[in-house]
């Protein structure tokens, strides 16, 4: 007897749960026979609330533990290779490019898992000062980061943006590619299975045109990271985010998708430097006393 086909419902991911959009709307990506949530600004607002709530405890975890969790993401993704490849095929990739993209994505999670407990050593410093202070600088996460990737970098591109953000202790609200949202939601399921605490990464699906202005104008989003080559879009994001001096990081696709997408500088781009002046006695003739 023929089995009934069981189709997957693609839902959004907010605060460790998979709700449907509060708006009740959906759309059909071109050429793909599924209903995908058409998220509203209120879904985005809820996602930011979840991301904000989760951020400090995520940043407070040991770097080593963040490392373990990022590696776990790669492990779980490895087990779901077939599903990712199939979804990329549905979204129009060739078999070869689908396999390459999934391999590259898994490798990238492993790459950034390795950096979690190392980037701090690379970018921190003890600074020479001319007074009796021990002066040192170190990186701190910016907070809530909005991540947007262009249509063509829906899996590798978005994964890279998310990995660099959470490796550095940020929490993320990510917008899936409008025409290729399937693999993003499956990535959300992977994250949900990988000990990533709920709210650290949130996924929305929907139309970028509708949502981008809310991404950039939200006062509680500290940074916005964009992978794509649309210079008009980048300009618009910069303009509308001026109100709270949101940091905008825009990368060309080649930078993120190629081997330059593996770089600790992408982590430090979503961190800010805090410098501490700690008073010490007797520096000078007697030498340092710390």
């Amino acid at each position: 007897m023929a089995r009934l086909e069981i189709k997957k419902t693609y839902k959004i991911y907010i605060g460790g749960k998979f709700p449907r959009t509060e708006s009740g709307r959906f759309y059909n990506p071109k050429g793909i026979d599924v209903n995908v949530c058409l998220s509203s600004r209120k879904d985005f607002r809820n996602a930011v609330v979840a991301a904000r709530a989760a951020q400090s405890s995520w940043a407070g975890r040991s770097a080593y533990n963040r490392s373990q969790i990022l590696y776990r993401i790669a492990e779980i993704m490895e087990g779901r290779r077939a599903q990712f490849i199939e979804e990329l095929l549905q979204q129009g990739s060739t078999k070869k490019s689908a396999e390459d993209e999934v391999n590259a994505t898994i490798d990238r999670w492993v790459y950034y898992a390795g950096w979690c407990d190392k980037y701090q050593q690379l970018f921190s410093s003890v600074n020479p000062v001319a007074s009796s202070h021990f002066n040192f600088s170190q990186l701190e996460p910016m907070g809530v980061v909005a991540a947007i990737a262009s249509e063509s970098s829906s899996l590798l591109g978005l994964s890279t943006l998310i990995a660099t953000a959470i490796a550095g202790g940020n929490s993320v609200v990510a917008l899936a590619s409008e025409s290729k949202p399937l693999c993003s939601i499956t990535l959300a399921e992977v994250l949900n299975d990988s000990d990533v605490p709920g709210g650290v990464v949130n996924f929305l699906t929907g139309k970028a045109d509708e949502l981008l202005s809310h991404f950039s104008s939200h006062m509680d989003v500290n940074a916005l990271v964009y992978c794509g080559n649309d210079s008009k879009k980048i300009l618009k994001l910069k303009e509308t985010s001026a109100d709270n001096l949101k940091r905008i990081r825009a990368y060309a696709e080649e930078r993120i998708l190629g081997e330059k997408g593996e770089s600790p500088y992408l982590i430090s781009d979503l961190n800010e430097v805090k410098t501490t002046w700690h008073p010490v006695e007797k520096i000078g003739a007697a030498g340092s006393s710390y």
Binding site: R45, S217, M219, N244
Partner: peptide, 9 residues
């Protein structure tokens, strides 16, 4: 003013 606000301010 428009735009979602942050308790930071």
């Amino acid at each position: 003013v428009g735009g979602y606000q942050s308790p930071d301010y």
